[in-house]
Design a protein around this nucleic acid. Structure first.
Lengths: 223, 223
DNA sequence: TGACCTGATACGTCGGAGGTCTTGAGCGAC
DNA sequence: GTCGCTCAAGACCTCCGACGTATCAGGTCA
């Protein structure tokens, strides 16, 4: 195994074992390199790799730190990965989202606060009946994110955030707006919100399923 | 932005735009560094980072290639990330798995082949009534993986594979085997298999839910 | 007291020099 | 003709030393 890969494993080990805790500062590059028995250049490759997936946070002129390791932060790196997928796997991602999002919406129905319900309502009201494509995409993303956050599971939230990444969503909407789907989407958002306000988990789940299934159906007929 | 980060973005751009396709070979380090306008050392950091998340495949003595970019390969990197999470977020991961796995099992009930059913049966038979901890862990992992693969969604499969990563699973089982849970787990596996053989999606879904919920319950009472 | 300057510290970038591994061409034995 | 070996070229691996740049702490001066 290459020395850089060993270094990655060792640093990972230090964090997993608890020798390095979230927020801790690593020894400076030259020292750490000496400790791990490799050159500074090779160590930097290891640090850079761990920095890309948000395990480490490197600050020039200051030092290198372990991040908070929040699920949200770590799974955020997943959206980087999702960006690489081509259209032929979008349906599979959507199918997973079709499983997760209704469940998350149902969970949210039992926990969401009145404030958040009001915030979602205001958000939909602000959009109006005939929004621009950019506004619609942004709103859709925010609407679903707001609901999923109320599910209380940060892993679930981050996962869905990654799955519904900007790229995927944008690709879908680009063509979707050409049909009548805009109006239907807005109506479905209203229906989901109403179910949440009623604390009706099953209705919320069903509306979320319908909502995603309609996108899926359209996408399937297009590809 | 640092030159290395720029290089990461540029390489990513070349892949996403289609200039580099899966399996393609990159120019050699010195050339690519010259093209992108940075030193070989800095470029290597970018390549190493993309290699960690399985975007690039570096072969010493040969060259650097774009991987197949299969969802399976890319999401495999997720298990690396999951390893960093401590016990306090295990429950959240398990909750997500509790959503996905029953759905995957239900999907599998409609698609699984006779051969695979036989293979799963043989696998359970081979294990016997009083297996060792190592065998049980390996069997559990294989059993669920086999079912999820039959769901026909590779993204779903990879995602569950990452969530049920070896670390998490091992931690759970280590203590779980101290109680009577072994026998119950084996019986639940049998029940899931029977439901699959009956092509009864709802029964399969329910048994999978029960199966995971029992683990979740035990874990919740322990932490 | 507060703004500014300055030195120490640590990461960022670079160029070059060997080392190691893979590959494929060339060549001889069977 | 085919198989196996040798060997050289190509490409990545590792290291070193130097210099650039950003941050922070402490001191200076108005």
């Amino acid at each position: 195994m290459a020395v850089t890969d060993e270094a990655i494993e060792k640093i990972k080990g230090m964090i997993v074992s608890g020798a390095l805790r979230p927020g801790d500062r690593l020894p400076k590059e030259s020292e750490l390199a000496a400790d791990l028995g490799l050159s500074r250049n090779s160590l930097r490759e290891a640090v850079r790799a761990l920095s890309l997936i948000r395990i480490l946070d490197v600050r020039q002129g200051d030092g290198t730190y372990v991040t908070s390791l929040d699920p949200q932060l770590l799974l955020e790196a997943m959206s980087f990965v999702v960006d690489f997928h081509r259209d032929d796997t979008v349906l599979e991602f959507l199918a997973v989202r079709r499983i997760l999002e209704p469940a998350a919406t149902a969970m949210a129905a039992l926990r969401i606060s009145e404030q958040q319900l009001d915030a979602l309502t205001a958000q939909l009201d602000k959009l109006g009946d005939d929004p621009s494509v950019e506004d619609l995409v942004a709103c859709d993303l925010e609407f679903h994110r707001g609901i999923v956050q109320s599910s209380g599971n940060s892993v679930l939230c981050s996962l869905l955030d990654g799955l519904s990444g900007p790229t995927t969503r944008a690709r879908i909407w680009r063509g979707l707006t050409q049909e009548d789907a805009v109006g239907r989407t807005l109506r479905e958002h209203r229906a989901i919100l109403a179910a949440l306000r009623d604390r009706d988990a099953e209705a919320a789940r069903s509306w979320a399923t319908v909502h995603i299934a309609s996108v899926e159906q359209w996408l399937r007929s297009t590809l």
